[in-house]
Design a binder for these strands. Structure first.
Lengths: 338, 338
DNA sequence: TTGAAAGCGTTACCAA
DNA sequence: TTGGTAACGCTTTCAA
């Protein structure tokens, strides 16, 4: 039913092989024939059959993207935005899979991508261990890890530095004189959580402040952020004078909890966010926040991947292991301790 | 280099055709042979070559998703979340394309999906007119429109009702006695914008309030929302007593603009948002907002698409044209006019 | 129950 | 410069 090369060949009155060459911009085809073939193809609305081409051994011009999909709503949106936009102009389709933070779906995703013969993979989910990565390495399928590192696996990756981000935020508060800083982190087992905790502790140590486990709480949703803040500010003595929020979104319930406790920001409590979203400068007061280069991470990831695919396998490849540095944007939600 | 059916056949000592039947769970294969084949396949880590299968005429088990990608960061995230999660268990891969609200990239997306022989398409971007849809209809490729309707094209779609959403919000304010309601809409040419404007006007008409063009402003970003609110509340006399914000995200700059003008919420100005995000109940004051069933829209869309694909083309198909109703969640950011 | 062979649409090789 | 032919990996007749 669909138009094939044979149809175009018949209409243009040349052989199938000549038709193929004409359409693929080969130079061993007379201008006159090429014109006729192109016209016929246009007329029949011909499109190449990718499966046939790939079966012959050509690249599939398809990439895989395995998302983790449990981090904040905005995370994937920001990270993937640049990915599609760079892939499309290069003629690549992207098959997107979600692991939903589960090993089973992650394994299925790898299987799907393998079956689809993708030319490369961007990976933001490594729940099932290094085996799938090893498979890709063994089979020389290029891939780049996004926001992840895997111990024992040498490969390309682009991450941001959550430890440094938390460190910068904590140091900022310590420099302002704060000593009782409530640290709100995400899911307890999550790798970035451990990084951030380490950054918090590093800053404390640098200022000779003892670490108080009570000051660390774990939450990730709006509801729990409100409750945890509300409870912690009442329970902990002396009361924290500053809060390192989980991210800018959960800063909103934090603000409300403080408001409900009649605590003013920043007079009574300083607050620092993470991610520096577009609305953060417009909170009341404007939020001091750590900007992580999430968008940059996605963009660099796909660029490295495409670069790697474009290279012949013979050339030596220097592993790209990039850690993007966070930046603290100071606004009005943080002030010196009186 | 990759393992093929021939390799499995050789190892299990049977023919290629028998191997194929064994792996495809056909019943005309002896149990003993099937076991041997499966074991050989496992041992060789065999995976079927999808391109070959599709070339033979099988379904590609691949769907296309064309996103518009100019709406808020969260919109795509919420809508697509359910899509992947339903497609994967059904064995479908999804090729995601972004039109970026441009006709050129949209056309390219359709081309890519056509080349990839997708079994169906979910479409949230119809910038280049009805031609690509007509192509899909002509070639019997199932598709479902998400958040879009196209005049003159009869097809399946799932949308939410922006007009009704704005109507509900406006009516709520009118019932509270407000008569000067600032209406903040998105990009001026955007279809939802026109719907929302109509909803606003319908509510006004119902209460016998004259429509004042001056009270309608267009914005979509955090920065412009702040400035537009700040300016409008100073410029317009009598000053609006209520604001219909563009969405919950831009509500944040609206709150700040009002705060900077020393206007209290809700005492001086009532505010209604759109989307009812997870953080909205935690704004200060908690935001009255219109919830649109964006997630439901994605979920229904993929379900209808899969259903349609599963049906033999012979059965009659009843067009699914679904408009999901919005819901107004009243909180503390709106009060009766004194 | 099994195997041989044809063919899906394309490209590459070789011969003309 | 052009055309015939083979082959990519699979499924599906059809025959044994």
């Amino acid at each position: 039913m669909p138009v094939t090369l044979r149809d175009v060949a018949r209409l243009s009155g040349v052989s199938v092989s000549t038709t193929s060459r004409a359409l693929n911009d080969r130079m061993d085809v007379s201008e006159e024939v090429r014109a006729r073939v192109l016209e016929a193809a246009r007329q029949l609305n011909y499109t190449v059959n990718l499966q046939a081409r790939v079966l012959k051994g050509a690249a599939s011009k398809t990439l895989g993207l395995i998302l983790y999909n449990t981090e904040s709503l905005t995370f994937n949106a920001v990270m993937t935005r640049g990915i599609y936009d760079i892939a499309t102009p290069h003629g690549y389709s992207i098959i997107v899979c979600n692991s939903n933070a589960g090993t089973e779906m992650e394994v299925q995703a790898h299987q799907m991508l393998r079956q689809n013969k993708v030319d490369g993979v961007l990976i933001n989910s490594v729940e099932s261990g290094p085996a799938p990565l090893q498979y890709l390495l063994d089979n020389q399928i290029p891939f780049v890890l996004l926001n992840r590192r895997v111990p024992g696996v040498t490969c390309d990756y682009v991450t941001v530095d959550y430890q440094q981000g938390e460190y910068l935020a904590a140091r900022h508060l310590l420099e302002l004189g704060h000593r009782h800083i409530l640290c709100q982190l995400g899911p307890e087992s999550h790798a970035p959580t451990l990084d951030r905790l380490a950054g918090y502790q590093r800053a404390l140590a640098e200022f000779g402040v003892a670490f108080t486990p009570e000051l660390v709480v774990y939450s990730a949703s709006a509801t729990t952020s409100y409750q945890l803040t509300f409870d912690a500010m009442q329970r902990i003595h002396p009361r924290p004078t500053a809060i390192l929020a989980y991210n800018d979104e959960t800063t909103i319930p934090v603000f409300k909890a403080l408001s409900d406790l009649n605590l003013r920001i920043p007079t009574d409590v300083s607050v620092v966010g993470q991610n520096d979203l577009s609305f953060s400068p417009f909170l009341v007061p404007p939020l001091t926040s750590v900007a992580q280069a999430i968008h940059e991470m996605g963009k660099l990831g796909i660029e490295i991947l495409l670069q790697k695919i474009a290279m012949s396998n013979q050339e030596p490849w220097q592993w790209q292991q990039i850690v993007l540095e966070p930046k603290l944007n100071v606004r009005l939600s943080t002030v010196p301790l009186p």
